[in-house]
Design a protein around this nucleic acid. Structure first.
Lengths: 126, 126
DNA sequence: ATTTGCATTTACGTTAACGTAAACGTTAGT
DNA sequence: ACTAACGTTTACGTTAACGTAAATGCAAAT
């Protein structure tokens, strides 16, 4: 069908196993509709999966990813809730910004390490 | 002593437990000298610990961190080895750069989410 | 009819990164 | 001498994120 995917299509596309995708569902991160017993994933489901895997590459736990994905979607309606949500978003951003700073440092360190290597190579006579 | 630390000093400074620090040693990431039975950490040990924890915030495994830390230190002497090391450094950098890109995307998403929230708040009448 | 290919559920196994507890040693203070 | 504050080793427990296997179903192709 148009804009729908089987579990193995998604697994192939994102380089994960079907077990992984079912596991995410078990944890409440996905909730595809069914055709009888088979899972059918929508474009929105696919996007969620992409976000989950992105979070994973960032070292987030599934729970954290679930949390963040929730923030994207539901603005909620209550003022109190909205303010709390903004607070949590800002907190997450601060953590991610720290992570970015860690990342930059590490990249610099690796750059220096590589330079040292090249230097050593040069000493050995190109 | 000057520039040396006890295990609990380091634990307090970095906000981890002594168990954690001993665990890192058990895994070969640290190797403090001893005063009898007690561990004494040098400035270099402390730096290593800082790098390990930085790696952790980036979502690296201890093994990956150990790997990277090794890259920082020993240029090695053999040409073949140097070239392989440069290759591995570049690979790590590529992964980190992908991570950075993931991070930027996530920060943008969170920024939009926050904007949506503020918008919703505004609609509710400041 | 049966093989092939994909799907399903259920359930036990595995690894990393520690937590937690037990039993003990050493040194400084009272 | 006793307690307190630190350290030690050994060992079993825990959680997250899946892997792996078993038993089964359904649907199209041979």
């Amino acid at each position: 069908m148009e804009g729908t995917y089987s579990i193995s299509e998604l697994a192939a596309e994102f380089g994960v196993t079907t077990r992984t995708i079912r596991f995410y569902e078990e944890k409440g991160l996905l909730d595809p509709r069914r055709d009888g017993t088979r899972r059918i994933y929508s474009a929105a489901d696919r996007t969620k999966l992409r976000l989950i895997l992105r979070g994973k590459r960032l070292g987030l736990s599934l729970e954290e990813s679930a949390d963040i994905i929730l923030m994207y979607g539901s603005p909620g309606n209550n003022r109190k809730q909205l303010e709390r949500l903004i607070g949590r978003i800002q907190e997450r951003r601060r953590e991610l910004e720290r992570q970015r700073s860690d990342l930059e440092s590490t990249l610099e360190d690796l750059g220096r390490a590589e330079a040292n290597c090249r230097q050593a190579l040069a000493v050995l006579g190109n």
